[in-house]
Write a protein that binds this DNA or RNA. Sequence first.
DNA 1: TAGATTGTTAATCGATTAACAATC
DNA 2: TAGATTGTTAATCGATTAACAATC
Lengths: 211, 211
Amino acid sequence: MTNIAKPVPRSVLTRLTHYYATVQSLRSAETEWVSSTELADVLGLTSSTVRQDISHLDFAGVSKRGYETSGLEAALASALGADKIWNLVIVGAGNLGRALALHEEFQRRGFVIHAVFDDDKAKVGRKVGKLEILAMDGLAAVVRKRAIDVGVIAVPGPSAQDVADRLVAAGIKGLLNLSSVHIASPDDVAVSDTRIIASLQELTFALMAKV
Amino acid sequence: MTNIAKPVPRSVLTRLTHYYATVQSLRSAETEWVSSTELADVLGLTSSTVRQDISHLDFAGVSKRGYETSGLEAALASALGADKIWNLVIVGAGNLGRALALHEEFQRRGFVIHAVFDDDKAKVGRKVGKLEILAMDGLAAVVRKRAIDVGVIAVPGPSAQDVADRLVAAGIKGLLNLSSVHIASPDDVAVSDTRIIASLQELTFALMAKV
DNA sequence: TAGATTGTTAATCGATTAACAATC
DNA sequence: TAGATTGTTAATCGATTAACAATC
């Protein structure tokens, strides 16, 4: 029986990714059962929130025992698409772009990087791991041929919107934005921001409040 | 006159970093005034939310004109601590750690990276830009001598909590967590998560919903 | 069985939005 | 001045928490 989708609010979705990471840790520690209270304690939530969130999944716990970690992991993986392969390209062969291309956790989690693009003539043709850096004019062909799902924007802020537009024009429906500027996109294109600089600013805000 | 701090909710704080990035773009385009409606349109919010958020700042707009971008930028910078210098160390000299150490946007925004640590003997002594990779046992001394504010955790998930503990033990009050696991920390230590993998999972969730 | 934990409903809390008087 | 936009209060909306019956 499939869950009739109550829409999943963004706050819940974010927590689902937390549960997924946590349950994976539990699994690798061979823990077979976890209760809503235990998950809540680890992540700083209430058990009530955890139970509400898990009710969005096509998965049920067991009275008195809690949740079986293997089933919960599978249900979370399925909800998040973590049990699928996703095809990525990275635009921007600077430090960040190259680091992500080489970051083996991506591959391990089903995010396959098919190409790295850059318009800097000096970079085109060089290697990043096993991938050759390609010129931007090859983008559309790669996206089509490899059925690319996600474009990673790893260029400086001033170029980010332009790169986003070219990725969208090439037919990509998902953008991961590593730059610090806001990306505008059509309604049918999803954008996720990593906001590294913004995270640091939230941190320094907290540090100042602390004094 | 200082704003008597109504506490700033996390959701507002996150938007303040968005406003800051946006206002900086406006400023570099030499735009002198911006209204709450314009900011809202750019960022996909309501003007009401924008005005509420800005009311947390020690800064006032002008009827009929909106907000002067220079003053708003300064007020946001002050609130976020973006007008200060922050001292960082990075732990983990893998692809991600090295990329951040070389990422010039950090320096440009007042985040000064003082050292990169790694316990891999093969890496210690090598250079990352102008910095030499140091062994972890030198951490406490550097933190004390350089008055380090923030520790960046750029190690694989399984080591992340251990690294966090060592950074906290060395006296650091702010952690930027680049790993995909949740970090537990004492109440007086602030943690900010970048969650690159989680961002991708939120994206793939959206892509699946779209089909 | 008794007790612990889920799933879910209802209550609370907080954040967002609407509305409008103040104002430049 | 007239009109546009802020700042703020009140209303709405949605998310979190509490509570408890169901249940294994």
